[in-house]
Design a protein around this nucleic acid. Structure first.
Lengths: 188, 188
DNA sequence: GGATTTGCCTAATACTATTAGGCAGTCGCA
DNA sequence: TGCGACTGCCTAATAGTATTAGGCAAATCC
């Protein structure tokens, strides 16, 4: 009986495992156990533990980009801003391990070929609803990236657990503030 | 010859090691090598690898809080905002391993007794220069945390490496934007 | 159906984490 | 100054993970 291993299937199972036990607990051994094969068998399909993690990261980036593309279709302005922001937040909540994986630092060449570039493009697309030209557009892209990633990772890490008001409320106020900032972007 | 190990010294050396090779490469073994003692010897001083990492995290949080307190002394308004923001950014650049350590998720009890609460208090103190009342103040605290952490971690992770304008410029524009947002915080 | 490919296995090595128990250097005290 | 107690670092053992080399059998291709 052969188990039918594949780099694809390993990455997919690794992503599930990451959501269950955390991305840094994803291990070649744990994955082998999950497929009920010996550890060494995985090495015909992935080069190393790092290679495996990279594949999981790429998978997560793709999924996230697909969701983002869906969410952005037909929207503009604040509507688009909110939609994209919620994609990140919801994905991180549904798939914390995958979200952590998407944060993995990739080799420059790998990153350039990844769905990361789609993310950058989509964030930029949102700014079409606002009146920004270079270099302000790039500043704004970075601002959005910072707020989305920063908020989501703090909320996920429990950073907001022990203070009072609802996080949903905060999230909405932050998106309001971002929208206002983009509308009244200070002239250079 | 005794090496003179101490939980304190181990945490301090662990922090240096983290800055050199990355926080997740900090290992009981590597630390033992650094002190030229056997691995088991460390276990008289720290309970486990996790305990060691927690101590490094607490150390980093303290250092960071001390720097922040220094930077905030005698400042208010945007001046204070910029000062605090720069403390985080500069610390992350000088001590990437420690900064990563400070991100470690702590047990609730440990977190409550850590310098984390000073950080929260100082962020709140900055808002005294702006006219916010609860619950907007809490929303604003969370916004600042998100932007600071998000920007710093993206910049550190190389997320801005392959786009054009200077990151310093972006950083200043983001702080301008934050200041404007806090001054014109939308009414509830 | 026989040859070839290839997928998974066994075996071996190395590194990390952790625990148990031993010996000797160090310190308190007479 | 010497004795005893303590405690700091050691040896030894176990277990989990990563990785490589080489083997055997199942699947595949004429």
């Amino acid at each position: 009986m052969r188990a039918g291993l594949t780099a694809e299937r390993l990455a997919r199972a690794g992503a599930e495992l990451a959501d269950e036990v955390g991305f840094d607990q994803v291990t070649v051994s744990a994955l082998a156990r999950r497929f009920d094969v010996k550890v060494a068998s995985l090495y015909s399909h992935v080069k190393s533990s790092h290679d495996l993690k990279t594949r999981i990261a790429l998978l997560a980036l793709e999924e996230l980009a697909d969701r983002a593309a869906d969410a952005l279709a037909g929207r503009a302005g604040k509507d688009a801003l909110t939609a994209l922001a919620n994609v990140y937040r919801d994905y991180a909540r549904e798939h914390p391990g995958r979200y952590a994986a998407a944060q993995l630092r990739l080799e420059p060449a790998t990153a350039a070929a990844s769905a990361g570039v789609r993310h950058a493009r989509m964030t930029r697309a949102i700014l079409r609803g606002y009146d920004l030209t270079e270099p302000d557009q790039t500043h704004a892209v970075r601002l959005l990236g910072s707020v989305f990633h920063g908020y989501v990772s703090l909320e996920l890490g429990g950073g907001f657990d022990h203070s009072a008001p609802d996080t949903q409320e905060t999230w909405e106020r932050i998106l309001d503030a971002l929208d206002a900032t983009l509308r009244n972007w200070p002239a250079t």
